[in-house]
Simulated assay, not measured.
Amino acid sequence: MACLITGRCLTKAMVNRHLCVFVGLLLIVIVYLKTWSNIFPFPLEYATQNLRRYRTSRLTSHPSLTGEAHHHIAYLKVHKTGSSTAQTLFMRYGMDRNLTFVVANNKSWFPNIISLNDTVISGYNIIPPPHGHHYDILCFHVVYNRSAFEGIMPKDTKYIGIVREPFLQFQSTLRYFNPETVFGDGRNLSTYLKSPKLFENPKEISFTNNRMAYEFGFPAPLFQFYDSLKVEQYLEKLGKEFDFVIINEYMEESIVVLRRILNWNVKDVLFITKNISSKKPTIDDADLNERKLYHRYAKLDYALYDFFLERFWQQIYIYGQDILKEISYFKSLRRTVEHFCITTPGKGLDVESSPWSAPFRITFEDCRRMLGPEFWYYTQIMRRQYH
């Protein structure tokens, strides 16, 4: 028998039983943590595992840290990726500097959407810039096509995109649209994921068939027949064409990198989160089998996300320790500003100087613009550019 300090003794059978329970609980915890990390890769672990590979990876040039601020931006606003948060930065920046936006020639539906299934087409789905001006910023919904974008944007345009973990993007789509339009009457998510293509109408615009890849302009045949070589080739093409792609799960980190690439001030990139669902994703929100089924279906979206997630950590690594300090500073400052704007914006908030910024002041007007919805910005842009 084995005796405890208390003097109570355990038989060998009891010891073995307790040991089995302990080992079982330990295994459950290990499996849980492993599963969670597969769904949401932790930054430090992910970066550490890949730093050695990053030394010789695709991105070899050091992002710009000096020079003039970049005013010409083409932002690919991808549906249900948290894209409105970043879009507000570009609209606010452009309005403050009287820049010219690409806007939709569209009066039959949402006027802030250029196209759900096509790229920009001069003389068709976009309004020409005012006389004597050229476009400076593109940030409304449209499908990416490099040659079409280059046809309307200045040569020194910075190309920015955004992606989100595919299953979370899919869940967000389902919360936004009526599920019956996706599944049909009497069907559920599991039924849909077992044979998704049975529920896709080829004559209608799909928001569930690798939608992120669609808006990034992936070749149409890849949606029917996945070809890993052609997918890799197209991703390499995107990697050369986009200066930066924001990762939704690391929004604040992404915005700090974006600030450095664009040479903007810290005040320019402060934001208040937009269109956030009150239901936060957890490990219990989706059956792991459903994730597995969706991963099998959304191969293009997962390839796209993994490619730019890797590239994102590479860019963080290139900047070194200094950017980690700025990220910590920015997170703290952003939360302070968000709280201030929501609670007491009328008083004004003075922000002291930092290694990354001169001192500045947040006013009521600054808060109003950070909180402004997309349609408010669209109305202001149209009034200023064309009236």
Rank of each mutant, 00 (worst) to 15 (best):
49 Q>N: 00
38 N>Q: 12
19 L>K: 00
69 A>F: 08
74 A>F: 14
50 N>I: 03
26 L>A: 12
33 L>N: 09
23 V>N: 05
40 F>W: 01
47 A>R: 08
59 L>H: 10
42 F>I: 10
12 K>R: 01
16 N>W: 12
34 K>R: 03
60 T>Q: 15
45 E>N: 12
65 L>T: 06
55 R>G: 10
22 F>C: 07
14 M>T: 06
13 A>G: 02
47 A>L: 09
39 I>Y: 04
72 H>W: 04
34 K>V: 14
41 P>M: 05
41 P>L: 07
24 G>A: 08
38 N>R: 06
47 A>K: 09
53 R>M: 04
47 A>T: 07
76 L>T: 01
46 Y>K: 05
53 R>C: 04
38 N>Y: 14
30 I>L: 10
12 K>V: 03
59 L>R: 12
38 N>M: 15
17 R>G: 11
43 P>A: 14
13 A>P: 00
53 R>N: 14
67 G>D: 03
45 E>M: 15
72 H>S: 11
52 R>W: 01
17 R>N: 13
44 L>I: 02
66 T>N: 00
60 T>Y: 10
49 Q>R: 03
26 L>T: 12
60 T>R: 15
33 L>A: 05
47 A>G: 10
28 I>Q: 04
61 S>F: 09
19 L>D: 06
35 T>E: 15
25 L>C: 14
38 N>L: 15
33 L>F: 12
12 K>C: 11
49 Q>F: 00
24 G>W: 07
72 H>C: 03
14 M>L: 15
79 H>T: 01
71 H>Q: 09
34 K>Y: 10
34 K>L: 15
23 V>H: 04
63 P>R: 11
51 L>M: 08
73 I>K: 03
59 L>S: 05
63 P>L: 02
48 T>R: 13
30 I>M: 09
54 Y>L: 07
76 L>N: 02
38 N>W: 14
27 L>C: 13
43 P>W: 03
33 L>S: 04
15 V>S: 06
33 L>E: 15
54 Y>W: 10
78 V>P: 01
65 L>E: 08
70 H>F: 14
57 S>W: 06
74 A>L: 11
12 K>E: 11
34 K>A: 11
30 I>C: 07
52 R>C: 00
50 N>E: 10
42 F>K: 13
53 R>F: 03
70 H>R: 15
42 F>A: 11
55 R>C: 08
26 L>G: 10
20 C>D: 03
30 I>W: 12
69 A>C: 05
21 V>W: 02
24 G>N: 07
46 Y>F: 12
75 Y>A: 01
79 H>P: 00
21 V>F: 05
66 T>Q: 02
19 L>G: 07
24 G>Y: 07
31 V>D: 07
33 L>W: 12
14 M>N: 01
65 L>P: 01
42 F>P: 07
43 P>H: 12
71 H>R: 11
42 F>C: 09
15 V>W: 09
61 S>N: 09
23 V>Y: 08
17 R>C: 15
68 E>W: 08
42 F>G: 10
77 K>V: 00
27 L>F: 11
79 H>C: 01
67 G>I: 13
23 V>W: 07
23 V>K: 04
34 K>I: 15
38 N>I: 15
29 V>K: 07
